[in-house]
Simulated assay, not measured.
Amino acid sequence: MQFKHFKDSKISWTKKTWNPWRGCSKVSAACKHCYMFRIYKSKGIDPKLVTRQDLTFEKPLKIRKGCKIFTCSMSDFFHEGADEWRDDAWEIIKQTPRHSYLILTKRPERIKDCLPKDWCKEHYSHVWLGVTVETQKEVHRIHTLGEIPCEIRWVSFEPLLGDIQLSQKELDIIDWAVLGGESESKERVRKTELSWFNSLMFQFLGYGTPLFFKQLGSYYHYHEYKVRDWHGEKYCDRFPNRYKIRQYPKYDQGEKEINNLKSVL
């Protein structure tokens, strides 16, 4: 059996992406300028139509070496439109403990009802469950995430759209934090104030929580630092040193090479 080469992701905190389905619907301010909508509209595809992608559905089985996989980068793993396929996706995840699956959602209220029947840390310790929190208004998602037994719980503060102050309870829930500004055109991008970044960095570093500063966002590319790429993600001479921090939580499970690929197919 011949397998296609799967390119590495351009997203700095993951190695690869996996989209067993595509399409989504907007639920909060972070969704306003979603890149998925922009990409699919440019291709003449309806971004609101949630569709199973058979060509990529079994992709993790075909990746020999264990790696971090951002799951549903072009959708939401817990979107109601994917309910009929999610069990099949969970089965693939269960079969491939060599990978770490980084699942990010804006629908944490659906997680409990969408977990596999045998969900537990022992069977799914290689699954990292995360939520997006863009302003103080969405901090409740962290509390919902905290109700789920999980090896790694993480939060993506991207695009960060306001100052966020976290309680000790919320900091206790978060095992890993990702920070980033918005990627958009010069005319539409929303600015992330550096003070918002600084505040969250102070909170996490002071609490000993691993922190991954992903990107400044497009605003700083266009208006201030002229960093190398329009996301403000790649390091260069003009990238502020204080934001050059990319940590991961300690994690030893999975990410191992499978010598006999046929054994998992």
Rank of each mutant, 00 (worst) to 15 (best):
S75Q: 13
V127R: 05
R110H: 13
H223Y: 15
L161K: 11
D76T: 08
A82E: 03
S75D: 13
S42F: 12
G130T: 07
R246C: 05
P108T: 06
V189Q: 09
K262C: 03
E138K: 09
L194D: 07
C31W: 07
K41M: 14
D113Q: 14
V50K: 13
P60A: 09
E80I: 08
K106W: 01
W85K: 07
K121A: 04
G217T: 04
E233H: 10
W176R: 13
E233M: 15
Q95M: 15
R188S: 10
F70S: 04
S183C: 09
H5C: 05
S156K: 00
E138G: 04
E80Y: 05
F78G: 08
A89Y: 04
S156T: 00
E80L: 10
I142Y: 02
L194T: 12
T96R: 08
K32G: 01
R98M: 12
K94I: 02
R246T: 11
W85N: 11
F37A: 10
L179A: 05
D54G: 07
S25T: 15
G66K: 05
L211W: 04
M36R: 00
R141I: 04
Q53V: 11
M36P: 00
D252Q: 12
G217S: 02
S12R: 14
D229K: 04
N19G: 04
K26F: 04
I142A: 03
V155R: 00
P159D: 03
K121N: 15
L171A: 06
A177H: 08
V133H: 04
L265Y: 12
S263D: 11
Y101D: 02
S195Q: 13
K32P: 00
F204Y: 05
P149R: 03
E170W: 05
P249Y: 10
R228A: 14
H231S: 12
F3D: 10
K186W: 01
K94T: 02
S218D: 07
Q95H: 11
A30V: 13
W154Q: 02
L200S: 06
V155G: 01
D237H: 11
Q95C: 10
Y101G: 02
F57Q: 04
F197Q: 05
W18K: 01
K59C: 10
F197G: 07
Q2G: 00
I39Q: 14
Y235N: 12
A29D: 14
E187R: 13
Q136H: 07
S195P: 00
R246A: 03
R98Q: 15
T209S: 07
I164S: 06
F6D: 06
T17G: 09
F78R: 09
R64L: 09
W119T: 05
E58R: 13
Y243K: 06
W13Q: 01
W176I: 09
G180M: 02
L49I: 14
Y243W: 10
F239G: 08
T209W: 04
